[in-house]
Amino acid sequence: VMGFIAPIILALLINQIGSTKVKGFVQTITYMPHFISTVVIVAMINIFLTPGTGLLGRFLGDTSLLGNPNMFTPIYWITEVWQHVGWNSIIYLAALSSVDTALYEAAKVDGARRFQLIRYVDFPTILPTCGILLILNMGSVLNVGFEKVFLMQNALNLSSSEVISTYTYKIGIVSNQFSYSTAIGLFNTLINFVFLVFANAISKRVSETSIF
């Protein structure tokens, strides 16, 4: 959910920056984490959260956040959103660039403030794009990922860090149960397809935006 909402909010905020140089700088800073290798990202997480010596771990004493099953999910999605929020906001910024400047001028003449410009000009402009991307994202709602989750797993957090992709890998490659792992992958694909069709039908009925 946050991986879908955060890029929209970031694009709306960046679009409000008046200075072209500042806007370019902010965009560059937010894009950069997307190009960092997953292995490097996980290494950074481990370094930052190392108990006693890490940037954040030093404030936690001997408590290991990566060893706490209850903290695995927050750590994963916070770092995932941080890494990809800038890159995923590009398509929304492209949609916002097509807004007629006359709309902003007319709204300002009528006394609209920044929040009202976002609400009544910017947001309606990117709403069709949001609908299409929501439908596409629903087609991969169960695909949390493999590399990052697998690298962050350890014996202490395994109860909450096991996802379909890592489970399929362990069943198919490690345990050599190829037929069972294939069935799991097929089930995953079918559920994602159902979500895709369902989201497309709702979007088509509510906003007349659909991909088929």
Rank of each mutant, 00 (worst) to 15 (best):
I29Q: 03
G131P: 12
S89R: 15
L55A: 10
I132D: 04
L12C: 08
L93D: 02
L12N: 09
Y92E: 00
D100G: 07
L65G: 02
V121M: 11
V99C: 06
I14Q: 07
V42D: 01
P7E: 00
G67I: 01
T30Q: 03
A6Q: 04
S19N: 14
W87A: 07
L65R: 01
M32K: 15
S64N: 14
I78R: 09
L96P: 09
F72M: 04
G131N: 13
L13P: 06
P128L: 03
I9G: 08
V99T: 12
V85L: 03
G54H: 10
Y31F: 13
I5F: 10
F35H: 13
P33Y: 11
G111T: 07
D62G: 08
K23W: 02
T20K: 15
V42W: 05
I45A: 03
I90M: 12
I91D: 00
T28Y: 06
S19H: 10
L93H: 09
V109G: 10
I9Y: 06
P74D: 03
Y31Q: 13
N46G: 04
N68I: 03
F48D: 00
Y76H: 08
P124M: 10
A6H: 05
N46Y: 06
P51F: 02
L66V: 03
C130D: 00
R119V: 02
T63A: 10
A106G: 12
A95Y: 12
G86K: 12
I17H: 07
T38H: 12
V22Y: 11
M44D: 00
I90S: 13
L60A: 08
F35R: 15
T20V: 09
A6W: 01
R58Y: 10
Y76E: 01
P7M: 05
L96I: 05
A94W: 08
T20G: 00
G52D: 01
V109W: 09
